[in-house]
């Protein structure tokens, strides 16, 4: 087994040094920001998301469309619920799985879904999980027709929905079902990847980094056969982004 110390000593030697040299913190590229700068960047991103929300929502609508989302705009929660029901009917969904994002309760997702005749399950539970529960939750996600989530953030630059998997937000709800619906609200949209990763860095600095993060930009796709782009290889074949215009 390679010893860590031995491995690293060889790397140091290869760099022509005899001991590890701490890298300069004031590197001229400015990409190595200190904690305070990252924090102020993260704060201004949050303010920005709130103040410029309608501008950011418009840009998100455009970039999400380009990334392959089917983009819908809803003036109010009722309209959003109507869109959810419409998609369920279109896909003749028998079963729906949703995360416990509060926006989904706000728009009355459960009633909208059950009114179409489909069943709805929610990924929520309290306390620690075990192997049996993980297995159960996997089976459920793989056999569900539609997965519905809110978003933790969206990114206007790239048409991206950002989700941090955690208790109440399964990793598979946005991946295993053939259709995924995401609902985004004003104030949740960030300008660019710079803001997103500044906020992640800030979370890390304050000891609150989530276990993982998924950036989702459109439907699963591949171009591995003769360079032809095909939608839906491992993940959803169809993804819908519902933009709720009022908070």
């Amino acid at each position: 087994m390679a010893d860590r110390a031995e491995f690293l000593a060889r790397v140091t030697l290869s760099l022509g040094r005899s001991e590890v040299l701490a890298p300069p913190t004031d590197h001229s590229t400015t990409v190595f920001e200190d904690a305070d700068t990252a924090k102020s960047r993260a704060d201004s991103a949050t303010n920005d998301a709130a103040e410029r929300s309608s501008d950011l929502l418009n840009r998100l609508a455009e970039s999400a469309d380009a990334a392959g989302w089917k983009v819908h705009r809803a003036r109010n929660p009722e309209a959003a619920a109507g869109l959810v029901a419409e998609i369920c009917e279109q896909k003749s969904a028998g079963s729906v799985l949703r995360s416990s994002h509060d926006v989904l309760e706000e728009i009355g997702t459960d009633d909208a879904v059950t009114n179409t005749g489909a069943t709805i399950a929610v990924t929520e539970h309290v306390g620690e999980t075990n192997r049996g529960l993980v297995e159960e939750s996997k089976q459920r996600a793989f056999s569900t027709d539609i997965g519905i989530t809110g978003v933790d953030y969206a990114v206007a630059e790239t048409g991206t929905v950002v989700l941090h998997p955690r208790g109440g937000l399964s990793r598979l709800v946005s991946l295993a079902p053939p259709t995924h619906i995401a609902v985004v609200r004003p104030g949740e949209v960030l300008d660019s990847l710079d803001e997103l990763f500044a906020m992640e860095r800030n979370s890390f600095m304050s000891g609150e980094l989530a276990g993982s993060m998924n950036l989702i930009s459109g439907p699963s796709k591949t171009a591995d056969i003769e360079g032809t782009t095909v939608t839906g290889i491992h993940g959803p074949l169809e993804v819908h982004l519902i933009i709720l215009e009022t908070g």
Partner: peptide, 11 residues
């Protein structure tokens, strides 16, 4: 502009 999925794993 971005790939469909970017996944960050922190353990």
């Amino acid at each position: 502009r971005i790939s469909t999925y970017v996944t960050m794993i922190n353990g």
